[in-house]
Amino acid sequence: MLKHLRSLSGHQNPVYALTGSAQAGIFFTGGNDKGVVEWSLSKMSFIKVLMPVKTSVYSLHQYNDLLFVGQRSGELSIFDLSKQAVTANFQAHEKPVFDIAVIPEKQEFLTAGEDGTVGVWSLTDLSLLYRIRVSADTVRAIALSPDHRQAAFGCKDGNIRIYQLTDYSLLHILEQHTLPVTSVQYSPDGKYLISGGRDAQLNFWSTPDYQLQHTIPAHLFSVYGIAFHPTLPYFATVSQDKSIKLWGSDDLKLYKILSIEKNTHGHTHSINKLIWSEDGKYLITTGDDKLVMVWEWDL
């Protein structure tokens, strides 16, 4: 179902952030080194260092021609891909920026920080509209429901907080993980939310009532990423345990494990991020071993 296609080198240190582009065949990575890197998926190669950074990149998010870059310093940079230039750079949080999400219908974007807040920003003039105190500690991950009416925030205190995006009111606090929540993702049909944590568990929450439906001991260590295949009923997870796992999104069955410990190709250190290509032909993963790995969907 998935087979190793290529390992791409270029980073000198661990890679923490990964995002795809609306431009076919382009993606971006960032981590604990001096710049954001642009890659070609069609050529399977490094293109260039897109922009320098002062501190480690903890989050990347691409929306149309804008690339949002969240840094350990709490700074947020915006790189305009059409102009090939940084068009904004400002202090979004007092501490590191861990995740970024755009709400196109509202012309707003969200930033989640180690300071426990979520910033709500205008996409048109970049002004701060609200700052929500979501948690007493780090807000690690953001997931928007497919209809963009609700947002799930995964927090270091082990809770997931669900907010209504019309007025940013708190709807639910989901308490199940025993350790920090490190990843959250809604299913494409919006029928459930998946959360992954440092407790190595995957929890499945029904919507709109957010009742716990299933708990799966998915990995050996932290679940750092969850990504649904764009067209087929599968999702993939990546973990600090160095494995990639492919699951059925309808039956929640485990279909594939990619790990050097299972005698397949794999990362040698923690896997921090994953994305699917827009056509679903490729899965891209990256992590602490400084590598970008491309996996091909093999029917």
Rank of each mutant, 00 (worst) to 15 (best):
residue 66 L to N: 07
residue 68 F to Y: 15
residue 68 F to G: 08
residue 69 V to Y: 08
residue 71 Q to I: 10
residue 74 G to K: 03
residue 78 I to F: 07
residue 79 F to Y: 15
residue 80 D to G: 04
residue 80 D to I: 02
residue 85 A to M: 04
residue 86 V to G: 00
residue 86 V to L: 11
residue 87 T to C: 01
residue 88 A to G: 00
residue 88 A to S: 12
residue 88 A to N: 08
residue 91 Q to I: 06
residue 92 A to I: 02
residue 92 A to L: 07
residue 92 A to P: 03
residue 92 A to E: 01
residue 92 A to M: 07
residue 93 H to L: 05
residue 94 E to R: 13
residue 97 V to F: 06
residue 97 V to A: 03
residue 98 F to R: 15
residue 99 D to W: 01
residue 99 D to I: 06
residue 100 I to T: 03
residue 104 P to G: 11
residue 105 E to F: 03
residue 106 K to P: 09
residue 107 Q to N: 15
residue 108 E to Q: 15
residue 112 A to W: 09
residue 112 A to V: 08
residue 113 G to E: 02
residue 114 E to T: 02
residue 115 D to R: 07
residue 116 G to K: 04
residue 116 G to M: 06
residue 118 V to F: 08
residue 120 V to R: 12
residue 122 S to E: 10
residue 122 S to V: 08
residue 123 L to A: 13
residue 129 L to T: 09
residue 131 R to I: 00
residue 132 I to C: 00
residue 133 R to M: 02
residue 133 R to A: 10
residue 135 S to I: 02
residue 136 A to W: 07
residue 138 T to N: 00
residue 138 T to S: 08
residue 138 T to I: 02
residue 139 V to Y: 08
residue 139 V to E: 04
residue 147 D to L: 13
residue 147 D to W: 08
residue 148 H to V: 14
residue 149 R to N: 15
residue 154 G to R: 01
residue 155 C to S: 03
residue 155 C to G: 02
residue 157 D to Y: 09
residue 159 N to D: 07
residue 160 I to F: 06
residue 161 R to C: 03
residue 161 R to P: 00
residue 162 I to Y: 10
residue 162 I to C: 11
